[in-house]
Design a protein around this nucleic acid. Structure first.
Lengths: 110, 110
DNA sequence: TCCGTAGTTCAAGATTATTGAACTATTGAA
DNA sequence: TTCAATAGTTCAATAATCTTGAACTACGGA
């Protein structure tokens, strides 16, 4: 069927769905990798997801991130390019994403 | 049996468990009420939880918050007094709790 | 000692998450 | 064009979690 991607408008993004999306370790990892790659410039799904994650699970996590408004996905030929909607979310929920990303980096460095 | 409450040491608190705890609407509401009451000064479970929440569910959510390190609970006679561990968490994960609380207040005012 | 209040524990039913298998879409090569 | 490879998607079934009623514990007051 291959339905088109749906992205919520910035004003429809809820704090709870953002927190819910980030509360999962796999999804937080994906977001961190996207942020590491510069955030706004995209990355395909396989590259952003942990290496051994089954594709169907991967697909599911990207859908959750997309519907929460954290990423924007676009089909480019055979792959899907995903970019963080950081700037928008930072405007809507100031400090939330940035402090979480900062905290998660620090946590990694142990 | 009534087991004693266990609170994680500040350095054992993980970002993911904090996000997980806050991602649930009921728990976020509880945290908001505790924060509204001044954070550090406590509130009993029934007062902090939404009115119609079954007690067993209530009890479960407080346990999640406690184990995530977000609240400190203490038995006082027949009730349990809960206080946010805001200052500690703010030190460990700067900006995370404060920006989430700020965002959730703004979201409410619509 | 008995009752009421506040919360806990357990178990079962309801809800969600994960993943293998089959499928779609696009690209590049023969 | 046709074929094969690549990158994801969808579905359905199993696994893991959440929610809640019922029974219980603990404390305080009459």
């Amino acid at each position: 069927m291959q339905r088109p991607f749906v992205h919520p408008a910035i004003e429809d993004i809820t704090l709870e769905s953002v927190l819910y999306a980030l509360a999962d370790p796999t999804r937080l990892e994906i977001v961190k990798r996207l942020a590491g790659a510069g955030g706004a410039c995209g990355m395909n799904c396989s590259a952003a997801a942990p290496a051994d994650l089954p594709k169907s699970t991967q697909s599911h996590h990207f859908q959750v991130l997309r519907e929460a408004g954290l990423i924007r996905s676009e089909r480019r030929g055979t792959e899907v390019v995903n970019a963080l909607r950081c700037a928008e979310i930072e405007k809507r929920f100031p400090g939330v994403i940035s402090s979480i990303l900062k905290a998660s980096e620090k946590a990694k460095k142990r």
